[in-house]
Amino acid sequence: MEQKENRKKEIIHFFGQLPVESLYTAGIAGERFLLGLKEGKFLANYCPDCDFVFLPPKLYCEFCFRELKEEDLKEIENKGILLSYTFTHIDTNGNRLENPIIVGVIKMNGTDTGFVHKLLNKIEDIEIGMEVEAVFAPKERRRGSINDIVGFQRID
């Protein structure tokens, strides 16, 4: 066995990379929702068995497993209540952001679920319980994505 002192330079790490690139389909229910956003509409769906409204809509009710079909979709108004919010001053790599990103959980009127998106107001103007509405991107820039909504802003 060789002695430890003979060891010249210890090799500790091996550096490498994992190539990860994903393409996520929105799915059957997801596509119904996103195509709604593209039209500037909020589409939710309702499970009559559980009396529950999902936003974003789902293919199935997760409580009773009923399939929710296209005809179960209903348009809801662009208005909701801010349930909670946070703001972040750093990005995912830990770098300081010049302008903080504000993220809120919004309960849209007529739905039973929270909806996460950005808030566009200044921090000092934001309070839990305030009424908010979605601001849509200009129609030509919408592509059927959650970012077809720019963010939510306070309604005064």
């Binding site: 091996f14 929105a26 596509e31």
Partner: peptide, 14 residues
Amino acid sequence: FCYETWIGNCFYAW
């Protein structure tokens, strides 16, 4: 179809 893409930034020091 509607989709999103994502490129992971997976560098490791094993």
